[in-house]
Design a protein around this nucleic acid. Structure first.
Length: 151
DNA sequence: TGCGGAATCT
DNA sequence: AGATTCCGCA
């Protein structure tokens, strides 16, 4: 039994929405509800209330800046039930994305990373829609839509 | 600050 | 697999 830290976070009464359930599943762990780090990053990025914590870099397509690394780590740790999470550990996980071609580092810019939308994210995750402004929306196309994971 | 190896966990 | 933890190196 897991106590204290719920596995799935509920959308608070207000109006924020989460990725649909199927977005949390992967081929390797069909039953898993564990959100992946880059899904979580995208989730924070699309919400206005986290603009002071993490935000898109205007002008650069898919590039984002972590303005408050400690806070992002804290939020991630809360979601994953890992109270000891910190930016050092979180950033290690982000670094693993380099080889998977999900992310890469924007060299010279502090706390700045860039999604490889064109190459990987868009083809495999059609529910992600990048608008001209650089903002991202999730599109719920239908529950039959499966993620085709092929990193 | 940022990197990536290594061991370990779920 | 996808992190998490720890760490030496630059």
């Amino acid at each position: 039994m897991k106590a204290g830290c719920s596995i799935v976070e509920k959308p608070e009464g207000g109006g924020g929405y989460q990725f649909p359930d199927w977005a949390y599943k992967t081929e390797s762990s069909p039953g898993s509800r564990q959100i992946q780090l880059w899904h979580f990053i995208l989730e924070l990025l699309q919400k206005e209330e986290f603009r002071h914590v993490i935000a898109w870099q205007q002008g650069e397509y898919g590039e984002f800046v972590i303005k408050d690394p400690d806070e992002v780590a804290r939020l991630w740790g809360r979601r994953k039930c890992k109270p000891q999470m910190n930016y050092d550990k979180l950033s290690r996980a982000l670094r693993y994305y380099y080889n998977k071609r999900i992310l890469h580092k924007t060299k010279g810019k502090r706390f700045t990373y860039k999604f490889n939308f064109n190459k990987l994210v868009m083809p495999n995750y059609p529910f992600i829609n990048i608008r001209s402004s650089g903002k991202i929306q999730t599109l719920l196309v239908g529950n039959e839509f499966r993620i085709e994971k092929n990193f």
